[in-house]
Design a protein around this nucleic acid. Sequence first.
DNA 1: TGGGCTAAATGGTCGGACCATCTTTTCTGA
DNA 2: TCAGAAAAGATGGTCCGACCATTTAGCCCA
Lengths: 265, 265
Amino acid sequence: MMDVPGFRASVEIMEPLFKIAKQNRIFQDVVNQIEDAILDGRLEEGERLPPERELKEMMGTSRSTLREALRILEYKGLIEVRLGMGGGCVVKSVSTEQMSASLDLLIRSQKVTLNHLAEFREQAEGAVVELAAERRTARDIRELEGLLEEAGKCVERGDPAADEFIRTDQKLHLAVARMSRNPVYVSVLRTIHDNIGHYFERFLVMKQKEMRENYRDMQDIVRAVSHGETQHAGRAARMHVRRFNTYMNRFKEPAQLKKSEEQTP
Amino acid sequence: MMDVPGFRASVEIMEPLFKIAKQNRIFQDVVNQIEDAILDGRLEEGERLPPERELKEMMGTSRSTLREALRILEYKGLIEVRLGMGGGCVVKSVSTEQMSASLDLLIRSQKVTLNHLAEFREQAEGAVVELAAERRTARDIRELEGLLEEAGKCVERGDPAADEFIRTDQKLHLAVARMSRNPVYVSVLRTIHDNIGHYFERFLVMKQKEMRENYRDMQDIVRAVSHGETQHAGRAARMHVRRFNTYMNRFKEPAQLKKSEEQTP
DNA sequence: TGGGCTAAATGGTCGGACCATCTTTTCTGA
DNA sequence: TCAGAAAAGATGGTCCGACCATTTAGCCCA
């Protein structure tokens, strides 16, 4: 009834994120209980929940209600449900899958275009490479050089290795993201990669010429990161991503058409 | 049976995102059908789905199965379920709620700390302000000046208006994000704000001194954006966020304690 | 005319039954 | 003796039918 003055009022202007009511819904309570248990560490990754028929007794609900809760937990990525004997609900480690999925929804609802993603990615990769240049360890440098070598071999092998080349390129980007020591970047960039990949990779066909260009960018980035040349590394990364984006744009239209036109003669 | 060579193979290295099997699960099919209908525009925002008892007939499933599907759609933020007569499932517009929720999970699972968020935010706000400085319209400028005036009044009113000041500050940040004309930034920054707010706002108490500092930053940013001084605007925004972060850090510890310690006996 | 009461529509919960899938164990035949 | 096939059992997936709780719409009476 009474308002608590100035208490979390400032949250409300942004999103109605925290639902006040609806606690009447039992499955929501079940979700919260299990979620808390997982996040508090009372349930550890890999641990199995009791079978539904036991769990429903423990929580004093019906199986239907329990199952609605399990569906939500599954979709949240907190548990994995396996079928058959020896199956059941296994606690998963929280991952970035859900962020990818939500971003995917935004894209599919046409609130976000791939150019938006590309623009965002350009500066995010720039920033992440700058951080990596500051924080990289000797081990990191070795890893980058290994990936570079892998990419180099692909370039030599030419067009047939184009697919592997793109994979290696993305591995390098994610490796650099990890070197920023900031998991937010890793999650966000992985999400972006997932979504760009989801919509484009089928159409991307890289020729040796493009591979060579991209390879030079990679060399440049790795060198700058290794030497701790922050500014240079950032510029190089932004340039690299921009090159990829313009390249991607050449393939964009077919991807945004309907499926019927995917295989134009 | 047969493998299609090099087809979306490169996606798989990143996340096992796309589940191959489990299409045996009926509710998943129901989710897909309704989701597609919404994203294709066959179901529009605000439209009501038929009541469960009808829908189950249409889709040839049981009510339990249908309800598991509806739970997922609800959690995805695609529908909203209302109780009672005249209630039912209403199609919602896709929002960033879900990204906020997933990020929240990452934070609560301690994969992400608030310093990670702060570091990320610093550069994201910088980038977004630079874009805004390039793309702002006359109308945008008026909006910013309006918000600035609002903030100015709070500063004059002193400590009692601190809460409203913080709100206005965040409104300004979101307004600038919109001016980047890139919804990815809007979504990401809103997500970050939500989560920072969620964990901190209760503890943040701003005094007039801090308000004055922040107000000067805001003036600086608005001026630079208005005049299209890209570089300056970016620097100012980064500085502003950094100041907020260091300020925030002074309040950090209590927020990260367990609930049991919130109300020490 | 207005306010309260009733009825109906709709989601929420329950219990129990059976099906489908997978693992484990047991059985069978070489 | 051992490999492979068959049976058993555990567990999630689906279905049905009933009843409860909440909310709106409409009726009735003062």
